[in-house]
Design a protein around this nucleic acid. Structure first.
Lengths: 222, 222
DNA sequence: CGTGAGATTGATGCAAGTCAACGACCGTGG
DNA sequence: CCACGGTCGTTGACTTGCATCAATCTCACG
């Protein structure tokens, strides 16, 4: 378990430079592949074309905070001081492109997109601060499911109350994202199941029965 | 108390356009003056020249999360969708300049500065996520004092273990920043006082006796 | 069909929240 | 200048939600 968390030494495991596919097409990566490690020099940053990548940072005592789950269209790995302050690894099979600041300087449209995304990520992070500090365990779990539902619905632009969502990450990942323990995540999920708001057909799938209800339980955000 | 928190209707109280001084010199504002309100259209953003401005966001049930304290050099009020997602008010007397995206487009140096700052703020927000979800109350309060010490030292570039710091904000502000209650903030502060790490000569001043010790108690961040 | 990591469920403890009373400071007006 | 009132802060008693510890379950994979 800790092995998953601790990053063994340097960037030795990260993808070697030059192994990236064409800039537009990107590179397909299987689950649990690191993009970069906390402390690495930030020579590149990345854009997710498909799949899920998560970023996290470690405290000295190996506590872990997952800072975000990146899905299609999201950028990650930007740094203000040329050092990565977190580690990024794929959660599911993903297609990722690698970029440099030189690419950005050459492309005005990319500049705009990048700046907007960064502002947007800052807002998300601030919302997450609210969630982490003010919400109860139940609200956090509900909010997490709603977030996943929104993202996965965006792709398959439905509008129904009912939908299946993917949970490619482990319970520990969810716990470390929400600032809870796996036990608490598990308990609150079964609560939701007992209340009939969701079903859990398999470990990595959730069926949402009443999205509106779930949103209510997630607590308002503004 | 709630009056302080609830924003009464629209942006009526915010500074009227045109009341800003010269773009470089800025505008002096007394404490508790709002710059903009959550929900306002984001026509301008701001840079703090001196003083302290805080930003916060409200949940529907009027819970408050302070998203940051901005001091000299910090930008605030950027938005990815032209709506302010938080409210900004001065904590102490401050000098603030107002800017627009047009200003940015006209100034390449400002672009760089702004982009760097935004990345940096994102990293800070992610660190804050760690603090909020993983640290104990005692660690949070210690970390808060260390943060203030670092900022105020940066200005008067000393390097000693001992220094006085200003606490212009109320205990409620500190609590809402750290995700605690005023009672807990108060208790942890008196703990630190009893341990001889700090002194509290007045309500809005703290004297740090052993900065190193305080940093240890704040818990490592990487 | 075993085996082990991941997930669930149950029992217990503790850190922080809540409720309540008191104390200290600040500005105001006599 | 001092007396007063109100806000803000501190301290104490009690409650509670989540973490912790521990046992069992399940299901993915060799």
């Amino acid at each position: 378990m800790l092995q998953q968390i601790t990053h063994s030494g340097s960037s030795s495991e990260a993808v070697e430079p030059g192994a990236w596919g064409d800039r537009k097409i990107g590179r397909v990566m299987s689950p649990k592949m690191p993009l970069f490690h906390q402390g690495d020099e930030a020579t590149h940053f990345y854009k997710v074309n498909s799949g899920v990548v998560m970023t996290f940072r470690l405290l000295a005592d190996s506590q872990r905070q997952i800072t975000g789950f990146c899905t299609a269209g999201d950028f990650l790995g930007l740094s203000s001081d040329d050092t990565h302050h977190d580690t990024a690894i794929t959660v599911a099979t993903s297609n990722v492109v690698s970029l440099t600041m030189a690419d950005v300087r050459a492309d005005v449209e990319l500049q705009r997109e990048l700046f907007n995304q960064t502002c947007s990520q800052l807002e998300d992070a601030q919302n997450m601060m609210m969630t982490l500090s003010k919400k109860s365990a139940g609200e956090k779990v509900a909010a997490f499911l709603v977030m996943l539902a929104k993202r996965q619905k965006r792709q398959s632009a439905e509008e129904s109350q009912e939908l299946d969502i993917n949970l490619p990450m482990s319970r520990l990942d969810i716990a470390d994202y929400l600032g809870l323990t796996i036990e608490t995540v598990s308990r609150r999920l079964t609560d939701l199941k007992c209340k009939g708001v969701i079903k859990l057909p398999s470990r990595h799938t959730a069926h949402i029965c009443q999205l509106g209800q779930l949103e209510t339980m997630a607590g308002a955000l503004a």
